[in-house]
């Protein structure tokens, strides 16, 4: 007789197989075949996880409709089953799958809408941290400012899209659906949860370059250079006020951890 571990190997593999091929050693009721009954587990696995994705991506679901969404979600579950029983952040790569789906051609922005929805879920579940106030910088002598590194708020995510994804997202919220959206307009977004509410802000090119640079671990001076390269004539003190007002900054990196290796991974855009 196989061990419990071997039995579970076979059972788990059968749950993951697409075709109705139950493992050996199980019985339904009496002499009846176990296939239909075993199918309950396969369906619970697929439909349950597809349901979890539906909770995370309600706007994608609204845009494409129930049937299309379920098919895409089940495809995702087959390709990227969860590695953790905590499903709060499940679906990080759902946008990538939507990008690849040929049938999603009518909605080329779908992948970015999914990335925005996931970013908002990420921010919602991030560590609770009080944002820092801008007077934090007043204690730093001016010559030291360019070498100062900011610690961004743990909820911060950024997203650059060729499409007006925030406008699409807003249009799908209750009470939306009336705005006429210029689909040719790209958007750069900042998602942050300074308190209990997740907020999405539109950024201009300079602000976006500034915050992306800071997220990668650049000091203020270097981040400012990036931002100026993107948008010459940018008002840097106004940028700092904006960052702090949005609750994007959690603190100043202590001198000891200022040396961040060059391959430090920032928030993906």
């Amino acid at each position: 007789m196989p061990s419990l571990a071997e039995l579970q190997d076979g059972f788990a593999a059968a749950v993951r197989r697409p075709e109705p091929d139950p493992p050996r050693g199980i019985t339904g009721r009496g002499d009846a075949g176990a296939g239909r009954r075993f199918g309950v587990y396969r369906n619970n696995h697929l439909a349950g996880l597809a349901g979890a994705l539906e909770m995370t991506f309600p706007v994608v679901r609204k845009l494409v409709g129930e049937e299309f969404f379920r098919a895409a979600a089940m495809d995702y579950v087959r390709r990227h089953p969860p590695r953790s029983p905590v499903l709060l952040l499940y679906g990080e790569r759902f946008g990538d799958l939507l990008d690849e789906l040929p049938a999603a051609g009518r909605y080329p922005y779908l992948g970015d809408v999914a990335r925005l929805e996931w970013s908002r879920i990420f921010a919602l579940n991030a560590r609770d941290t009080a944002p820092a106030e801008i007077r934090l910088l007043s204690g730093i002598p001016e010559p030291e400012l360019p070498g100062t590194r900011l610690i961004l708020h743990p909820s911060v995510r950024t997203l650059a899209s060729r499409w007006p994804v925030l406008a699409v997202w807003q249009d799908c919220q209750p009470g939306g659906g009336r705005a006429k959206i210029d689909m040719e307009r790209p958007e750069r977004l900042l998602v942050v949860r300074p308190d209990t509410e997740v907020v999405t802000h539109r950024l201009d090119g300079g602000s976006y370059a500034f915050i992306r640079s800071l997220a990668r671990g650049a000091a203020l001076g270097e981040a400012a250079e990036h931002a100026m390269a993107e948008e010459p004539g940018l008002d840097l003190s106004a940028q700092l006020v904006l960052l702090f007002n949005y609750g994007t900054v959690a603190g100043i990196a202590p001198a000891a951890v200022n040396k961040i290796p060059p391959d430090q991974k920032g928030t993906p855009s």
Binding site: L7, D9, R83, L87
Partner: peptide
């Protein structure tokens, strides 16, 4: 059981 080889099934699977 609901996890096997690091993969979470999100279902309560039966035991012998």
């Amino acid at each position: 059981w609901s996890t096997h080889e690091g993969l979470f099934f999100n279902d309560l699977l039966p035991l012998p």
